[in-house]
């Protein structure tokens, strides 16, 4: 009960902070919109299916790294210490992951909407399945990047380390996600993708479990 209450408070705090500054939200939205626009200018016409899919995931990957990396990197040492005295580390990692998942799902849906407005969704594709794939993707990005950004923030120098540490971990899941999204674009039968969905969910659960176990050790200085 104590844990649930702490998690709720922490998520509220994160949302409030974000709402007041709107830094992450605006920054990432600007990033997504400008990237899509640059792509539009350089492609001139509608890209074919494969390019469409690849481009979307590249944009999402970098946007999510920028969005999630801030969750630990932006906070000062003093504030870390203050939170440490107030709540349990488990509550903190759960709260950060849930908040980042929500943020990522929101961002992804907005990005997808904008992306579909500029480049139409390929004809014959399964839009609902594609949305499922992107939501799964944003959940995965959130769980993995939250933990990696915690590690990177403890190690001192932020952004560079974050990229080095997270890319080898995210690539296997990204391959699964791109495959899933490609199935959706090709309009394949939904039963084909069930295995991949299961695999992504398993990886997510595994990452979450490992983070929950490891974060208390990481947090304690």
């Amino acid at each position: 009960m104590q844990l649930a209450k702490q998690v709720k408070q922490l998520i509220r705090k994160e949302m409030l902070l974000e709402w007041r500054s709107k830094y992450a939200l605006n920054g990432v939205l600007l990033y997504v919109v400008s990237t899509v626009f640059v792509c539009f200018l350089s492609f001139l016409n509608r890209p074919e299916k494969l390019t469409w899919n690849a481009l979307f995931w590249i944009i999402m990957l970098f946007a999510s790294i920028n969005a999630v990396a801030k969750s630990f990197l932006q906070e000062s040492k003093g504030r870390h210490l203050y939170i440490y005295t107030l709540v349990s580390p488990t509550a903190l990692i759960i709260a950060k992951t849930i908040y980042n998942s929500l943020l990522m799902i929101g961002l992804t849906l907005i990005a997808l909407l904008f992306y579909c407005m500029v480049f139409d969704f390929p004809a014959g594709g399964d839009l609902l399945m594609y949305i499922v794939a992107t939501i799964l993707g944003s959940l995965t990005f959130a769980t993995i990047f939250t933990m990696v950004s915690a590690i990177a923030s403890k190690a001192g120098n932020g952004g560079m380390l974050m990229a080095i540490l997270s890319f080898p971990i995210i690539i296997p899941v990204l391959i699964l996600l791109i495959k899933l999204a490609k199935n959706a674009i090709d309009g394949l039968d939904r039963s084909v993708s069930l295995d991949d969905i299961g695999m992504v969910v398993i990886v997510n659960i595994m990452v979450m479990a490992v983070s929950l176990l490891l974060f208390p050790y990481l947090w304690r200085d």
Binding site: M147, I151, P168, I169, M206, L214
Partner: peptide, 9 residues
């Protein structure tokens, strides 16, 4: 911690 995190991956 990173080592344990990376091993399942």
């Amino acid at each position: 911690i990173y080592n344990i995190f990376a091993f399942p991956m």
